[in-house]
Design a protein around this nucleic acid. Structure first.
Lengths: 155, 155
DNA sequence: GTCGTAGTTGAAGTTAGCTTTAAGTCAAGC
DNA sequence: GCTTGACTTAAAGCTAACTTCAACTACGAC
């Protein structure tokens, strides 16, 4: 294995779009690993770029680093992940996005009949009190971005 | 004006769904005001409840407290805000939600052709690199939730 | 071998939006 | 007038996801 196959932290930063400090942080958090040069500098394998693409995609879908870390932990240890591996990890994303879209759509559709009319009641307003967005304590609620989890009390 | 017309902090907390600590924080940040009792305790006018409904609604649409604060600052000083006042403040919300929905939809639709196929390329992947979601430096980008503002470098 | 750029570490700082804590004061029912 | 629960403040703490800092070391072109 030639040393020239390995990437420095600045190369990875440039090619991935992540800041070098973020790469170090991700390594610290267990999302990445790197070999080391004789002097202790990081040397990345090329497939770290795909891993980083996955991380960015997952972040864009709204996953936390903890969730991403857990997902990455299910990848095989001993071989380079295949397309099937990555596909498996992103299986739930469509549902997640669908739920986020549905929640926002509901919010928007409540707008015309609520803010538009100036009612703005804490008890009745669909925007300030979108309780049904999160649909109780079901699985759906956990997937919603924090943005959509707020709700007024029912007192 | 009878004293019984005024609400204590715990009453406002119960009726608005905000924690008392949040109410104090909002006051500190200039989003709320309250009269004081002889002993220095907060006494809220009833219309603070509508103000809080607005704040919660705005938060649900994705506005920061700073933005909400700026919006509230445009309300008339000397009279109770009317329906028209509140409607004016929420005028941009529909557009904002539309943009968020469009962004998420684009992300979801990229999923099938990108993660689904396992490509996950930093340069080509629509999920890890949704540059067109934010549409450059236009007004739209500013309205997108932080969630959607990430994008890979184009190097 | 010298120089300048790139890299190293742990710790502290940042941002938003609150919550918690400590130590003390007020309000009001009996 | 006593007791109890509600309230006050400033300051510190919390979470996520990083960034910045300070002080130091490595790499590699010349």
């Amino acid at each position: 294995m030639k040393t020239t196959d390995l990437l420095t932290v600045s190369e990875v930063a440039r090619r991935s779009g992540f800041a070098a400090s973020a790469l170090r942080y991700y390594e610290h958090e267990g999302l990445l690993t790197a070999q080391r040069s004789g002097g202790g500098q990081r040397r990345y394998e090329r497939n770290v770029l795909r891993r980083l693409a996955f991380i960015r995609a997952a972040r864009n879908v709204g996953l936390s680093l903890d969730e991403i870390s857990a997902a990455l932990a299910t990848l095989p240890d001993r071989r380079t992940p295949t397309r099937a591996d990555w596909t498996r990890l992103s299986n739930g994303w469509r549902t997640r996005l669908d739920e986020q879209i549905a929640a926002l759509t509901k919010l928007r559709d409540g707008l015309d009949s609520c803010i538009g009319c100036g009612c703005l009641s804490l008890k009745r307003c669909a925007i300030s009190n979108p309780a049904d967005l999160a649909a109780g304590a079901g699985v759906g609620a956990a997937y919603l971005p924090r943005l959509l989890r707020r709700s007024a009390a029912h007192a």
